[in-house]
Simulated scan of single mutants.
Amino acid sequence: MSEKKPLILVTNDDGITAPGIRALIKIMNTLGEVYVVAPDSPQSGMGHAITLNDTLYCNQVNIVESEPQKEYSCSGTPVDCVKIGVNEILKRKPDLCVSGINHGSNSSINVIYSGTMSAAVEAGTQGIPSIGFSLLDYSLDADFTPILEHVETIVKQCLINGMPKGVVLNVNLPKLPKDKIKGIKICRQADGRWEEKFDKRVTPLGKDYYWLTGEFINEDKGEDTDEWALANGFISIVPTQFDLTAHHAIKEINNWDL
């Protein structure tokens, strides 16, 4: 890191008052000049959604008076927060964007649904080194203390080394006491899927409605995956790319009679 403080954009999908982002902000304040642009309400599962057919509001707020960061509460999605933060609020392109700390896992296939990771991906598409952090604890009372040292280490290494072009990091942290976390593993995304179920109910007026439920199925037995790492007490880091081209399939499809 240079002597000049890095400019860090912090966002999330659980909302600007969520305990996870408040913990992340405290760490970032020790590392750089911090701007927070985060949703004014929970936006979990929004993926890479953006607001096109509605107005966007972004208001400066002061959640914790004793903290030095500048904060803005946005009516939009996590991706909206990054777009408006980078293009309207920050005085220059940030040196780093961090998203989270999410309450709950974003490992395996969950990465494509995640508002947390989509915010990081959006920053990555704009050439900003970016990391999404998630703790495997969905509770509003989740304890982030055991993982904070590791979060700081990962961010420092990113600031020192930079990020490979076209890559953002998907970091998932196990719900374990500090002394039970075995270390950090660089992984691939596990081949998992959701077996969806819908809980069908009826309103008092007789109209059907549904709650999406389901079960996550990990079909990958590899010991180099994020799911394996997390199940075995490690923090997983998956380098995630946003070029969705299936390069390995180009040759095969070129052989089609098109």
Rank of each mutant, 00 (worst) to 15 (best):
L140K: 14
G166Y: 04
N172Q: 06
Y113F: 15
L176Q: 00
T17I: 14
Q43N: 10
W228T: 01
F242P: 04
G233W: 01
N232I: 00
P239L: 09
K251E: 14
S75V: 07
L52V: 06
H150C: 03
D179G: 06
V98F: 07
V82H: 11
N170P: 09
V82E: 12
N106K: 14
V167G: 03
A249F: 11
L173Y: 01
Y35V: 15
I237C: 05
L148M: 07
G32I: 10
Y72T: 00
A190C: 05
Q43G: 09
A246P: 11
T125D: 02
A49D: 12
D199Y: 07
K4I: 09
I128S: 08
K93R: 10
S105L: 14
S73I: 00
V121L: 07
Q189R: 08
A123S: 09
L56H: 00
L31S: 04
D80G: 07
T17G: 04
L135Y: 00
P42E: 15
T153V: 08
E223H: 02
F133W: 06
G104F: 08
F144Y: 06
K221E: 13
I50Q: 14
L205S: 13
F133N: 02
A18C: 06
S134Y: 06
L258D: 07
N232M: 00
L176R: 01
D54P: 08
V167K: 10
E152H: 10
S66R: 15
T203L: 06
N53I: 02
D14R: 15
E88S: 10
K207D: 15
